[in-house]
């Protein structure tokens, strides 16, 4: 590359930097889209110098192929395995259904299955893309449930963790204290509490915050259900709303969640 102004070199330097990162293992190859990186570099080149000259195109292609090679080397099995064996060593047997063999490397069979599986979905993707475009032209009379519910939540007052904690304090006031002789180590406790909340909401549009705590009468039970509630909010399985300040806090399945999930 000769006498190129530094701005011209930036897109190519960015690609070289990416290649180095991939080679050193500083960049996770799964998190990098080589196609997007090349596209961005192309846009930058067009922005900076318009139509690139032949020398510049050569440099760009060289940097681009390095990125693709570096990513491929990190994701694909080592070259020796692509020929079925490593010189002087028998090919290790792979576990059924595993992408890796006994040495922790990709097996040929697993790689082939993986690539074929990916290819199988491409036809389905084409069909979904066709339907996506076709159904954009159809306007439903009934409004999608999620829009109705989102609009409802706009008129609701915004609920913060503080509001939930305040409601929890009220519940805890009435819950009897327990004499702890040991700390329960039930790893399924949270899961059970989440199921409890789901079963409270199921079949109803929504339930009041207090209704969730009618069954666990102990303080630890109350805390467990509260933690499960936070987890379900985090997973976006449920929504929490309050129609007015100091009003009842209501819990419902999130739109598109379990309530709408019958297929």
């Amino acid at each position: 590359m000769k006498d190129a102004p530094s701005e011209r070199l930036q897109p190519i330097r960015a690609l070289e930097e990416l290649t180095r990162g991939l080679e050193k293992g500083e960049v996770d190859p799964s998190s990098v889209s080589a196609l997007n990186a090349l596209r961005e570099a192309m846009h930058e080149i067009e922005r900076v110098i318009g139509k690139p000259d032949l020398d510049y195109v050569g440099d760009f292609l060289s940097a681009a192929s390095d990125v693709i090679k570096a990513k491929a080397e990190k994701l694909l099995p080592p070259e020796e395995y692509q020929n079925g064996e490593i010189e002087g060593e028998p090919e290790p047997e792979s576990e059924e259904g595993s992408l890796y063999d006994a040495e922790g490397e990709w097996s040929n069979e697993a790689l082939l299955t993986h690539l074929m599986e990916y290819r199988v979905f491409q036809d389905a993707v084409e069909e979904l893309a066709r339907r996506d475009a076709a159904w954009r032209d159809v306007f439903p009379r009934s409004r999608p449930v999620e829009i109705d519910r989102l609009e409802t939540s706009v008129v609701s007052t915004e609920i913060e963790l503080e509001d939930l904690l305040s409601a929890l304090k009220d519940i805890l006031k009435d819950a009897p204290r327990e004499e702890f002789s040991h700390v329960p180590q039930d790893e399924l406790f949270l899961e059970k509490s989440m199921d409890h909340i789901r079963s409270c909401i199921r079949g109803k549009d929504e339930v009041a915050f207090g209704e969730l705590f009618q069954k666990p009468v102990t303080r630890s039970g109350v805390i467990g259900v509260f933690l499960a509630l936070l987890e379900l909010i985090r997973l976006r399985e449920i929504i929490v709303r309050q129609d007015r300040h100091f009003g009842e806090i209501m819990i419902a399945f999130a739109p598109g969640g379990e309530a709408d999930g019958v297929q």
């Binding site: 036809d123 389905a124 069909e127 979904l128 339907r131 996506d132 076709a134 159904w135 159809v138 439903p140 999608p144 449930v145 999620e146 739109p255 598109g256 969640g257 709408d260 999930g261 019958v262 297929q263």
Partner: peptide, 18 residues
């Protein structure tokens, strides 16, 4: 997937997936 997925793609049910 959800029922919103079915509505998005105009599917009566998952059985209609190609």
């Amino acid at each position: 997937t959800t029922s919103a997925f079915l509505r998005w793609f105009g599917l009566a049910s998952l059985d209609e997936l190609p």
